[in-house]
Amino acid sequence: MSRPEIGRQEEFRLLVEQHSRALFGLAWRMTGNQQDAEEVVQETFLRAYRSFDRFDGRAQPGTWLHRIAVNCALDLLRTRRHDAGRVELQAVGSDAGDAVPARDTAPGPDRLLLSAEVQRRLTAALGRLSPTERAAFVLRHYQGCPIEEISRELRMSENAAKNCVFRAVQKLREALQPLL
């Protein structure tokens, strides 16, 4: 490897150190399981590395990586949907993957423990969302992205992005309301 190449890798390594965990969280919300989330994180960094030379600081590196991750996750969800007809979902903790041991985030004293039934229904409902509904909802609900930004990231009109989020909320409501 040439010297600039080593420098570039070193610089890229810092991005990996800094953003891996956040990207994993995003990828997990998008895909609903650990192996897929890990794949998305790897693919995100590979794609990012290919375009690293063109990343010129117009965006925050976090924002830039997060955009790539959303698109990787969407691609994966679309492929899965195509392959299997639906997105396979695993409940947290039932994951057989061994690359990274999953630890549930411990609920604080002020946090309600979700009943197993609510969690099961929610997982199932998220799995029934279309890839774009899920992406739009994750961006709006967990990432706090405004609709305008979601429409840019998912390359759809603001109206379409709004519809995706709204449909997702409705589906989650239908699944959960009877229990809450």
């Binding site: 990996v16 650990q34 999953a102 630890r103 979700l114």
Partner: peptide, 27 residues
């Protein structure tokens, strides 16, 4: 209430060494 339940959906923590593991596979 529905959205609060969604908020509380536990996401797995990949652990403190996750970034190192990612890099090891990526490099």
């Amino acid at each position: 209430r529905v959205l609060a339940a969604v908020d509380q959906m536990p996401a797995p923590d990949p652990g403190e060494n996750y970034a190192a593991a990612v890099w090891q596979r990526l490099e």
